[in-house]
Amino acid sequence: MSSTIFKLEKVTRSFAAVEVLNPLTLDIPRGEFVAVVGPSGCGKTTLLNLLSGFIEPSSGEITRSGRMRMVYQQDGLFPWLTVTENISLGLRHLKDERELESQLKELTALIKLEGFENHYPHQLSGGMRQRVEIARALAGDTDVLLLDEPFSALDYLTRLRMRRELARMLRERPRTVVLVTHDIEEAAQLADRVIVFSERPAQVRCEWRLYEPRPRDLTHPEVVKAVHQILFELGLEKDSQLETAEWIAG
């Protein structure tokens, strides 16, 4: 088992004539929670698709290790399958009926949806649906969770709740996580490292590390500081009183 899950070496990607990603060099070690934030259309999702292997880079090199699962923005669940049937997609490798049964039970408990096993996605709220998606992605022995704006379709309070839920689930089933989001608070509340992208073609503007263990309160000083610093860097908040020494060169 290598300790680096993703290694990107001067990776670029363009679609037709449009360059989406400037040469990007990035290491993501096992177990890290990385959040990528940036203006919409800046190439965040392209990065995720490169990491998952859905697309290949135009130049440069990516090494990937570990088994990956992606959680989509919304409607990633199959509407014709129940909660249990959707989650079992993540357990297709299990042949033993008893093992499958106990895993399903454990995962349903993890997302606190006991009693909803036989419900269909359209009978659930948006937050419940995303919880099922996360359970499906956490099922089995996977190493990496790729999250593509998983909570962006939810209302504000549900979003706050889902962040706590995700932190709790990851404590029980640790994974390397890459979260793509435009929600800077979300990134600061969840990630060990926040990478800020510039406008297209995307370039790493800066990185910010957080050390407070999860779940972090939205108003925790470290979170507030990170949010302020990121917003400042994006030109959305006034001058920073914080020393720039904490910044890692981007």
């Binding site: 998952s52 990956m68 992606m70 989509y72 990633g76 993540g90 297709r92 490798h93 499906r136």
Partner: peptide
């Protein structure tokens, strides 16, 4: 929706 086919591929269908 294209996402169904992506999910299917993610899960080895």
């Amino acid at each position: 929706p294209n996402v169904y086919f992506r999910v299917a591929r993610d899960y080895g269908i």
